[in-house]
């Protein structure tokens, strides 16, 4: 993976956030506050005392070799994975749990679902709903979860599709779209919920090289417009260009973090150096 950004002719419009009526305002300056998170898969200690803060409008890129826990970590942020220790707060709300006498007790499904409405997620394998068209994919959650009127959701959905350059594909089913197109629809789908935070789990790893650029373009646009983002990726070009902060994880531990300038020019940690030497 070379990580250079491809120029594409995709007409990525401006103002992705305008399409949804502006970004949801995070109520706190710190959007994500993960404190001493511990997670085990059986005997495997996949997250060890991981702490990370993400400020409003900040773009944090998480790097690391496979198996380092970076994907697991962002899956914990919207409680797709349970944690066994520590706390994760998003917009000041403890995610997935209630605290009872200092212990974590898993929250009710309805509460967890409500918390997830604030957190958009984009998956490596897109996970579009194959029985729904691109537009139906986008309006599903706003109408079903937020109770938005169909007409309003359609308007927002069409606007979002236009902004990701796929206005003509509104009535196409996912199977009729390329990987890059599917991922752009998936981003639009997540944005339609007006999230305060977007999580990207290796959004370009399943794409053919020629399609990576069009997805990164959308993500860059989103970052420019001030969306708060955590991005797990191997795209070093994206990290250099867009990230406010780069976090290096290895074996379940945050090894090093810093600005892209610091990170790529003067990595201090041995494991960061060896990882970067392999990937750049």
């Amino acid at each position: 993976m070379t990580g250079h950004i491809h120029q594409t002719d995709v007409a990525v419009g401006h103002d992705l956030l305008d399409a949804i009526g502006g970004a949801a305002t995070a109520s706190t300056a710190v959007v994500v506050d993960a404190q001493h998170v511990d997670k085990w898969f059986g005997k495997l200690h996949v997250l060890q005392d991981v702490s990370l803060q993400v400020k409003r409008q900040e773009v944090v890129v998480v790097l690391g070799p496979s198996g380092s826990g970076k994907t697991t970590f962002i899956r914990c942020v919207n409680h797709l994975e349970k944690i066994q220790g520590g706390r994760i707060y998003v917009n000041g709300h403890l995610i997935g749990y209630r605290e009872v006498d200092g212990k974590l007790v898993e929250d009710k499904e309805a509460n967890i679902a409500r918390q997830r409405q604030e957190i958009g997620m984009v998956f490596q394998r897109f996970n579009l709903f194959p029985h729904k068209t691109a537009l139906e994919n986008i309006i599903e959650a706003p109408t079903q979860v937020r109770g938005m009127p169909q007409a309003e959701a359609l308007e927002i959905g069409k606007a979002l599709l236009t902004r990701v350059g796929l206005a003509a594909k509104a009535d196409s089913y996912p199977a009729q779209l390329s990987g890059g197109q599917q991922q752009r629809v998936a981003i639009a789908r997540a944005l339609a919920m007006k999230p305060a935070l977007m999580l990207f789990d290796e959004p370009t790893s399943a794409l053919d090289p020629e399609m990576i650029g069009e997805v990164l373009e959308v993500m860059k646009e989103l970052a420019r417009e001030g969306m708060t983002m955590i991005v797990v990726t191997h795209e070093m070009g994206f990290a250099k260009e867009v990230a406010d902060r780069v976090v290096m994880m290895d074996e379940g531990v945050v090894v090093e973090e810093g600005t892209p300038e610091h990170f790529f020019a003067n990595p201090t940690h041995e494991r960061t150096k060896s990882f970067l030497s392999k990937i750049l």
Binding site: E109, M121, F129, V145, A190
Partner: peptide, 10 residues
């Protein structure tokens, strides 16, 4: 997972 991440209940 995609449905849940959009805030849909089980």
């Amino acid at each position: 997972e995609a449905a849940k991440s959009l805030g849909m209940t089980p």
